[in-house]
Design a protein around this nucleic acid. Structure first.
Lengths: 231, 231
DNA sequence: GTTTCCCGGTGATATATATCAATTATCAGA
DNA sequence: TCTGATAATTGATATATATCACCGGGAAAC
């Protein structure tokens, strides 16, 4: 992790969190003056679950995984963190601890913004506060959907859902590089890595996807969606 | 569902949401003037998933279940709604639809507060907005923990967790009336009703709990916690 | 009072999924 | 270029959990 400011200012940042649009020029300046940048190499931990929360995190470039370190050292991958999104667990407002860990998958350029500044802005700027509530609500909604999927769908459905998540949210393309290992894909869809391998193969055999271990291409999107929905 | 105002005002209400403490007298009055009461009989639907959100819900008395209607008509019980708590799903801020359904278990006296008023207060009162964020965050944190439990614990652990939830959160007592049917207990812990019956019996046989189908008494709390944590 | 339906309960069985053991592929250093 | 180390893959097996079929009881409906 090296610390050199590469981004000149929040004002000109192309990956800026869209909710910052509710801030006045002065308020945005306040954010800019209270941020620091850092870069991370693949595999490096950006945020450690349980550590005190002093900052809100944004990514300027790269990809990371957010995950909960659960029982018996088993991880549970929550999402792929992307540029332009706020990365801040609910723990900030509960016990001032990070609810989940974040680890870089590719090289990551990150911006940390002092949380006290953040909190201050929420108190003085109603529109900003509301936009934060919207952001949190959207995440919460996704988590609930996820919970229902995990408990009511079978493996095929969960894996299909995972593959569509990468296509629709992460890469916005039906062909992509699978940045997670089979093990991690299992941690995301709650299945053993062996099962991931097997079902991936089944999907390939039935011409729903093409896969060469690092690359995934969705061939029959209709069918993949059906598998995902039918469970 | 009958509509008669039984509670004289928010100001004197003993079951008032604690976050209302951040409101000024005038603001609280605004809330009071824009609420309406209703009572529900056991089994009645208070809120229907997917319907438009025009109100925030509070309960003055009684108990209800909040649940998501998932795939193939399978329900997923999220929590037991209790007096003094805000009952408002994230959908309010996402698509203006209720994310989950709420149904009365006992007789319920409820207060609906116009959501536009609520939204207005969030914009003008920073402390109130922050307290709402805290409330949402706490729920979000619980949901994440729940998701990890559901995916990493086995049936015994999940059921033990459920029993402790009733003891610690719902009734604040180690002896209580089980207000959910075995079927519903299964919808809460993600297991078939037959399995609920069997494991409940196992717990009774090993003297961890006493149970006579409608009553539950925790006999060995230490052990129950251990089962819950070990998975 | 009878009927109906849902709930609790039980045993047998089917199914989904995890685990184990072993083999091959891949890739970053030395 | 070799060489561990790690990941992908495979088949066989074990385990957790769901489903099915059935019974009896009680509460609500007729």
């Amino acid at each position: 992790m090296s610390v050199i400011n590469l981004i000149s200012s929040c004002e000109t940042c192309t990956q800026r969190w869209k909710n910052f649009q509710h801030l006045t020029k002065e308020e945005l300046n306040l954010v800019n003056e209270n941020r620091y940048e850092a870069t991370f190499k693949p595999g490096e931990t950006i945020i450690k679950q349980g550590s005190p929360t002093s900052n809100a995190l944004f990514m300027a470039s790269g990809m990371a995984k957010t995950y909960i370190e659960g029982l018996n050292g088993k991880n549970f991958i929550l999402s792929i963190a992307l540029p332009g999104r706020l990365i801040m667990g609910p723990g900030v407002y509960v016990d001032s601890r990070h609810t989940y860990s974040v680890a870089a998958i590719t090289a990551v350029q990150a911006c940390f913004i002092n949380f006290e500044i953040f909190r201050q802005l929420i108190r003085i700027n109603g529109a900003f506060a509301e936009s934060l509530i919207e952001d949190i609500s959207a995440k919460s909604q996704l988590t609930l959907n996820r919970m229902v999927s995990l408990s009511q769908k079978k493996m095929h459905g969960r894996l299909a859902e995972g593959l569509l998540y990468f296509a629709d949210v992460v890469f916005k393309s039906d062909e992509y590089e699978m940045i997670l290992s089979r093990q991690e894909l299992g941690e995301m869809t709650n299945m053993a890595k062996e099962c991931v391998v097997r079902i991936l193969k089944e999907l390939e055999d039935s011409k729903v996807i093409y896969s060469d271990s690092s690359k995934i291409r969705i061939l029959d999107r209709e069918k993949l969606i059906m598998i995902s929905e039918k469970g």
